[in-house]
Design a binder for these strands. Sequence first.
DNA 1: GCCGAACTGTTATGAGATAACATCACAGAG
DNA 2: CTCTGTGATGTTATCTCATAACAGTTCGGC
Lengths: 164, 164
Amino acid sequence: MGDACHHHHDDGPPSAEAVSVSLAAADARLTAEGERMTPARLRVLELLLAAGEPVKAYDLIARFGEDGQPAKPPTVYRALEFLERKGLAHRIASISAYVACTEGGPAHAAAFLICDCCGATAEVTAPLAGALDRAAHDAGYDIVRTTVEAHGRCPACRDAAEAA
Amino acid sequence: MGDACHHHHDDGPPSAEAVSVSLAAADARLTAEGERMTPARLRVLELLLAAGEPVKAYDLIARFGEDGQPAKPPTVYRALEFLERKGLAHRIASISAYVACTEGGPAHAAAFLICDCCGATAEVTAPLAGALDRAAHDAGYDIVRTTVEAHGRCPACRDAAEAA
DNA sequence: GCCGAACTGTTATGAGATAACATCACAGAG
DNA sequence: CTCTGTGATGTTATCTCATAACAGTTCGGC
């Protein structure tokens, strides 16, 4: 991911230390909650954190083994399901990819800004709770979970396009 | 689709006449715009309109031939792409399904309320333009297209669940 | 130490979508 | 009228995404 266009500008994935810190924090939090942070779950979260951008499930599968051995698909999909349930990762349906969650708290609503050019994403805290919930209520729906994904261009790609 | 739970309550798909009317209107509008409303495109739109709810691509493929003959996948995917481009249909990414558009106008933003129980959906007119656009602007993103999908329970399924 | 629940390993397959290339239909230029 | 290029379609094959099903294992609680 991250290079659909031809100018790759990277915010830089998080440093190894930053990944370790986030990973340890997640481990500590969930373990305290009585959840089992197994090696597979930690590994998938590590890969997501290290990427710093959305990753395809099969890329996680390919990178899973430290020695280059791929995982079996269910291993990774199960870990992703767990992480998503615990609010540590999100699935981005419009591009079939997964990303580590950058916001705290379990199972929160999330919205994403996705650059169609370079693949960068920004997670923003649900700026639509009000309007959407009102529309849902008017229609008689009870809403449990929302998917909000906005596609366009990130600042760097926009600038690059204007320069051309 | 439409029966994930055990109580199927149908708003009723549109009548055959209603489908014909919508189909003819779409045909007239796009033909006037110089687009080619070919048989395959009309057929896919007809199937979407007749369903009155989201339909999986492979269900469209299976139902495509009037005589029961399925279509080849690219036939249907190409028609869907065209219809989506023209604002006559939407893809609902979170459930990988397609639905005829119930709002006028080409290429507008749309938001969906989706019942996880019975599959019913309601299209609501973008109630988040303001908040989301502001968030995007703050982050420096230019937004081209948004996916807004809220999952929960429709009024009928909510009532049925409460009764239990 | 035993038991049940949750997690993992493994095989296989189902479901969703597109690449690549040949062919065809049609509108506009000459 | 015929040439010609663009857009649409037909066809084959393949790719990506995701899960079903079942056997085996780990771990905490009793």
